[in-house]
């Protein structure tokens, strides 16, 4: 039991990213790199996305995942990483923002 850690291959985002990559799918990894105030997911949390918009994991409580997936598909397309920022101060907050009042920065990069 001390020797092996059970990564939940059906829910662990980085294990899923590895599986998807092995299956030849194009993958982007989104990571929470900074939070301010009340943020639902801690720094280091992941959302992984494939080119068809399938995703696993979370970077918020479901508030901004939709927007991150859209951006991630662009990142998969052109290969350039992006830094996204979400918060109530954002002008699009009423549409895509954190209802909890926090702010988060999410780094999105292509795998490979």
């Amino acid at each position: 039991m001390a020797d092996v850690s059970h990564l939940d291959d059906t829910r662990d985002p980085l294990a899923i990213a590895e599986d998807w990559m092995g299956a030849g799918r194009e993958v982007a990894i989104a990571t929470v790199v900074e939070t301010w105030g009340s943020a639902p997911r801690p720094v280091g949390s992941h959302l992984v996305i494939d080119a068809d918009g399938n995703f696993h994991g979370s970077v918020s409580g479901g508030c901004v995942e939709g927007a991150v997936v859209t951006e991630a598909i662009d990142v998969i397309g052109d290969g350039n990483p992006k830094m996204l920022e979400f918060g109530v101060a954002d002008e699009t907050a009423w549409r895509v923002g954190l209802s909890c009042g926090g702010r988060i920065k999410v780094y999105v990069e292509r795998l490979g």
Partner: peptide
């Protein structure tokens, strides 16, 4: 992210390191 790094990272995590 480099795919080899992801594999290496997951290997460390599976080994509880």
């Amino acid at each position: 992210m480099d795919p080899h790094l992801l594999k290496g990272l997951n290997a460390e995590r599976r080994a509880r390191r």
